[in-house]
Simulated scan of single mutants.
Amino acid sequence: MTELWNWRIDRAEPVTVYPALAEALGRVVMPLAVADPARLPRHAVICDVWQAPGEFGTMVDCYGVPESRHELGTIAALARLLDRDCLLTDDTLDAGRHLLVAPGGTIRPVHFEVTETDDGELLSARRLCTLAHPACRGWSRCRGSRWAPDSVNPALAAA
Rank of each mutant, 00 (worst) to 15 (best):
A77F: 08
C86R: 03
L93F: 14
V114L: 08
I107Q: 01
R84K: 12
G64L: 03
R108G: 00
T106I: 05
G96C: 06
S68W: 08
G64P: 02
D118Y: 15
F112P: 00
V65F: 07
E113W: 14
E67K: 06
L72H: 13
R80F: 10
S68R: 08
A95K: 13
L99G: 00
L87S: 01
T89H: 15
G104P: 03
G73P: 07
D119G: 08
I75R: 09
L82C: 02
L100S: 00
E71R: 12
L72M: 13
F112T: 00
R84P: 06
D91I: 06
G73C: 11
V110K: 00
H70M: 14
T115W: 13
I75D: 03
D90V: 09
T92Q: 05
R108Q: 06
I75Y: 07
D119N: 13
G64S: 01
V101N: 02
L93Y: 12
A76I: 07
G105I: 04
E121P: 13
D91H: 09
T115I: 14
T89Y: 15
I75V: 12
R108E: 01
G73I: 09
H70D: 12
L88R: 15
R80D: 08
R84D: 01
T117S: 05
A102F: 11
V65L: 02
T106H: 14
H70N: 12
R69P: 02
R97P: 04
A79E: 00
E67C: 08
I75H: 06
A102D: 09
G73V: 11
Y63W: 11
D90L: 09
Y63I: 06
H111P: 09
L82W: 04
L81D: 04
T117F: 11
L72Q: 10
R80G: 09
D83I: 07
E113M: 13
R97M: 09
D83M: 11
D83E: 13
D83Q: 12
H111G: 15
A76W: 11
R84Y: 13
I107Y: 00
T92K: 03
S68L: 10
G64A: 01
L87Q: 01
T92Y: 02
G105W: 07
G96M: 06
G73Q: 12
L82Y: 04
A95Y: 11
L82Q: 00
D119H: 13
D119A: 12
L123C: 07
R84M: 09
L81Q: 03
R80Q: 14
P103A: 05
Y63F: 12
E67N: 08
T115V: 14
Y63S: 00
T89Q: 14
A102E: 11
H111C: 15
G104R: 11
